[in-house]
Amino acid sequence: MHGASGETEPTETVVIRNHLSELDRVDAMVERFGERTGLSAETLARFRIVCDDVLSNVIAYAFPDDGEHDVEVRLTMVGRRLVVRVSDDGIPFDPLSVAPPDLNAPLAQRQIGGLGIHLVRSLFDEVTYERRADRNVLTLASKVADEPGRPERLAEHDTPAQGG
């Protein structure tokens, strides 16, 4: 699958505790990832949105014991695909099993909840859930379509083609 042998894929990992304030550390990681990869501000914002939605959901619902838990977040760039993996040791929960909200209901009848996972699925091409070794593992992947409106950032971080 991997063409460029010897070239490591840019990866950032952070393990946070199950508190919303810990999301600041995820922000810092996204920042570092952005600096390494030169991704556009828009792409990084999409990243932050899904991290916020997925992680706030995990923190709110995965740990009914109210104990301290670790949640691992990993960002990887595989070619032009961006992969986010979130894993936790909370109760089994497949967010993909949640029915999508009715997006045609008028404002007065509109359901306020249930938007998070729907939004995550809209922003990323592929979303998969696995229960693996007593952990929930949610993997999101999307091809990066950074627009040519920000060539200065792409150029700044552009490296000569490998394969020589």
């Binding site: 914002a45 999409r46 932050r48 949105i49 916020d52 939605d53 706030s56 404002l107 007065a108 509109r110 306020i112 909840g113 938007l115 998070g116 729907h118 939004l119």
Partner: peptide, 19 residues
């Protein structure tokens, strides 16, 4: 800069109240 679904909820709740 951006809004996540938690932020959208805040806006929708206010919109409903105003309605």
């Amino acid at each position: 800069e951006y809004v996540s679904s938690a932020g959208l909820r805040a806006i929708l709740v206010a919109a409903k109240l105003l309605l």
